[in-house]
Design a protein around this nucleic acid. Structure first.
Lengths: 345, 345
DNA sequence: ATTATGTGTTTAAACGATTAAGCATTTACC
DNA sequence: GGTAAATGCTTAATCGTTTAAACACATAAT
């Protein structure tokens, strides 16, 4: 039993497919279709449970009403959630989203871009991974609409929606300082992505502005792929050094989780043995015995705005470049509780 | 700058589009294309960076190489992970996945089914929600290939891939009994979905087989939408009753999370005040101060097998019905640690 | 009576690919 | 030399829509 097409309806009604198309697209007025025949067409369409073929529509119109969403790491709940927001927002506007995760690999990301271009997506929303600048350039050259989400490349002029990571990290640093910590480290991915660098820089400047010298041993950069083991080593090191850190900022959710697991194994107490602030947000942070202070990124807003920007661009390709940095909010919890003052020396 | 099409290549090469199509689809042998011209065509295709238009291909062939994945609740990390597995597995086979979450609402699920049918997906993988039987019947009638994942309707003959929930819950019950607990409750969604009922039944039979009378007050069924508040009430009740439970099985991840939050607020200790076993799996369970015993469902296998079943069906629609129940594994942790014996009376 | 205007409908091309069928031409065979 | 087979390529229909243009009437205006 084949799907019913315009032709089927046309045949039953004894008219041409053109009329059927006009009526079912609500163009009866402009195209002056007779009221009687319009009724009949609608009636038959309902009886046959007509559902238009999106492929044909898209082929004809050149618009698929589909957005390609490329996410650097969908296992990160922050990104998983942002994907949901994007999807919901897109659906509200009649768009379908095809999601792909590149797991922080630029080649995978290339594949995805190509697959999705073949599928004729109207545009992209991309959480870029390291080394994917060429892809951004490619999309620009080919004039394919896209918006970068959460991560962007300051040296490439593009639309983007991101968090003010510098400020977020600066605030986190100040918060820890005000809570009485001064030897504050940060763990980040080994990466030259701007958002990572900003998170590191934010803390460094917070310390500098409070007259604390940042010790390079306090910065721990680990590789994404080998995170599990490297995090352990890193923790060992920052705790062992003669300049042992008292507090640590984790630049991503994944780092924090791995670190917390290890810290548990070591039977260290948070925050007395190590105070913690983490980027990202997840239920884990609430349920940890010592709830984790975290940087809450404006997830909903980021997702919604990225869709909004993209759809505007799709409607009017000549519209100007849109860039926005949103503010994150530090949510103080027990893991960064004020330190009990200790007499010096 | 338009995308290059077959026609463009044909023009440049001075041949018909048919030849180009043959060559680029590797059919030069069967269709006896001259070697010289084949070379030329490939050359030009490369120069123009030709990417075939999937829409046109699909329209012609009636196959989109797209799978619709409908998930009952994507905010559940178990489902989020299974979605990843499905996506990866599909991609390996050249399929693209369009994911939609119906948030446990049957109407949303209907919408998704229709949207995806319009998008001409080749088939569906569905984690059904309550009240969506009509949709399953609809797909069967319309002869649209689909596989039910994780949840199925025993009264409807369909392909499905699911967990043996009865056994999983039975095992959980036995484990708790062996750990010295006897007043064991279970919290589930108020639902007549088979997988839920099986989880309840599993515990009940485990108790019966160990000569423990199941007290109906130990069964707490809460509504998905109002879970936040109902869980609290339910916990209050099972702890207050004269037949206070000592242990509780949570039939879903969401229920466990909510309960744990409340238990923390009440400053109750796990497992001494209340032992816990939960379905689902997530990092939270590892990081909780008292790691949570949980039922590990064969996530990878479930996802992969569902794709496998569907793709087989797509290749050969007449293949027989495929149904499989996979075994879950109980992962014992501290939250269900053996109880210290207490003298009776 | 002729032209203009309005009304209701059909025709046919187009989107970009696939593919059965047809058409030349060359080579093989008896 | 005549038929058959092999070779290399083109034509044109098709998938299901959309939509500009053409067409055929009826009614109104001059």
């Amino acid at each position: 039993m084949k799907k019913t097409s315009l032709k089927d309806i046309a045949q039953q009604a004894g008219v041409s497919t053109a009329l059927v198309s006009y009526v079912l697209n609500g163009k009866e007025k402009e195209t002056r279709v007779g009221e009687a025949i319009a009724q009949k067409i609608r009636q038959i369409a309902k009886e046959l449970n007509y559902q238009p073929n999106h492929l044909a529509k898209s082929l004809r119109s050149g618009k698929t009403y589909t957005i390609g969403l490329i996410i650097a790491d969908i296992s990160n709940p922050f990104f998983a959630n942002i994907a949901r927001v994007v999807e919901d927002e897109a659906k509200k506007n009649g768009y379908t989203v095809i999601i792909g995760s590149c797991d922080e690999h630029a080649e995978k990301s290339w594949d995805l871009v190509n697959v999705l271009i073949n599928r004729q997506v109207d545009g992209f929303i991309i959480v870029s991974c390291e080394g994917s600048e060429n892809q951004v350039h490619y999309l620009k050259e080919r004039n394919i609409p896209f918006v970068l989400l959460d991560r962007h490349f300051p040296e490439i002029q593009t639309d983007f929606v991101a968090t003010n990571n510098y400020k977020a990290s600066y605030d986190a640093g100040v918060h820890l300082i005000e809570s009485g910590y001064s030897r504050i480290g940060i763990m980040a991915y080994k990466s030259n992505m701007y958002h990572m660098e900003e998170r590191v820089r934010g803390l460094q400047h917070a310390l500098r502005d409070n007259n604390i010298d940042f010790n390079d041993a306090w910065l721990k950069e680990v590789n994404f792929e080998t995170m599990d083991s490297e995090v352990r080593t890193a923790i060992d090191e920052v705790l062992a050094s003669d300049q042992r850190v008292e507090a640590m900022i984790f630049a991503t959710y994944g780092l924090a989780i791995n670190a917390l697991k290890y810290i548990n194994e070591l039977r260290l107490k948070v925050p007395s043995d190590l105070a913690i602030v983490s980027f990202g947000q997840a239920e884990v942070f609430d349920l940890y015995y010592c709830p984790i202070t975290y940087v809450r990124q404006p997830l909903e807003m980021l997702g919604k705005t990225s869709v909004e920007f993209l759809l505007k661009k799709l409607k009017n390709p000549d519209e100007g470049m849109k860039q926005i940095l949103m503010e994150a909010k530090l949510i103080p919890r027990d893991s960064s509780k004020a330190k009990k003052p200790v007499s010096k020396g």
